[in-house]
Design a binder for these strands. Sequence first.
DNA 1: ATAAACTCTGTACGACGTACATTATACGCC
DNA 2: GGCGTATAATGTACGTCGTACAGAGTTTAT
Lengths: 213, 213
Amino acid sequence: MKGPKRSLDVSKIVNAVMELLDEEPAAAPTLRGVAARLGVRPNTLYTYVPDRVALEGVVVEHLLELAGPAALAGGTPWRERITGYALRLRAELLSRPGVVPFFFSGPMNGPNAVMVGEGLLAAFTEGGLRPDDAARAAYAVIVHVLGSAALAAADLPGPGTSEAETLEARRTALAAGPPLTAATAATAAAWNSPEQAEWGINRLIDGCVRSLR
Amino acid sequence: MKGPKRSLDVSKIVNAVMELLDEEPAAAPTLRGVAARLGVRPNTLYTYVPDRVALEGVVVEHLLELAGPAALAGGTPWRERITGYALRLRAELLSRPGVVPFFFSGPMNGPNAVMVGEGLLAAFTEGGLRPDDAARAAYAVIVHVLGSAALAAADLPGPGTSEAETLEARRTALAAGPPLTAATAATAAAWNSPEQAEWGINRLIDGCVRSLR
DNA sequence: ATAAACTCTGTACGACGTACATTATACGCC
DNA sequence: GGCGTATAATGTACGTCGTACAGAGTTTAT
């Protein structure tokens, strides 16, 4: 290559994004913020990435990998592989709520997304689903995990509010609602808990398996 | 009340948002855009709504109603009520992709959200689920619908690109992937189709029902 | 040695959400 | 029935965002 040496590369940029998220997990990282942290002008990033959406795309790829897609390939029972990856990914996202919107800003077609898809396909195939159903099931799992994370992130307590008190606030609000809502207020108030997410994914997998008979 | 007459009200604002979405369904409506359409300065909207997130919240409420939550209450078989509302809501969102992020920008606790929850609870209860499971199932359905809509919106063809050609592009890209992905490329390429969404929701409900035995 | 290719900077633009002071309007009260 | 006061809308402004474009500086190929 001709010109001057590059001072950065995409992985350095991703690292900067992750550092920003470590410091302020709920704040959505911005192009300018990333550039500032790297000691560089905002438009310098355009050398490495065509636009903001693409930057978010590489961050998404990094997070998909952080959740350990390799563990999807085999070793443990197929069902645990699916729920395991799903819940790990969800946890990674919720510990950095600022990154959640990135998953909805463009198509997910990077190599890690493909790898996750292949791993889910393998697991569901091992579970006895026919190929087409396995494909549908794999997508449904992704939908569920990302939907769950996004809704939970939208409901996160702001700074200066404890998790326990928002939960209690939700519970009393629901208890004042219509009959069925009131009757299940305690359960419904914890709708964004990991346990609830796990329940949902398990029911989804149950339904996919049931389609066998 | 004392001061001058109000020139607007919240419903007029919501109407303006919907008009903006009619004209440019993929563009996220902005405070300034809404104000301009109403012939008013941007900060005038602060008389009616505390901030942008709250504005988005009332739009969300309006869309939840547009999908016809009353039909959740009864009349048809319980299962159809659930899938019907879910798919109607999904369709409303996808015909206005610009509004999808609004569903993830704050808690969903308006009256229509409560009404939808109650309707889902009623349907699942009629389906035989115990109250707590019905609550979990209701939330899982919401997660799935919104997740599906958000992922589909993120993958929508840009202007000047037909749906058929993006589908074909996805198919060939997947066909070049790892073995299981390649084998199911045709199915997986249509992952954001309404049929696929329906399949996912039906599997989820199947799984919830199965938890009975 | 020179030209071409490439990186980064400097500067700028328009859009966004929102804050604050100011002006105009209408009701309640004496 | 005029007047004070609460309220609505405006005017103006600030800081942040993504991104465009021209220019300066650096490296390699010839």
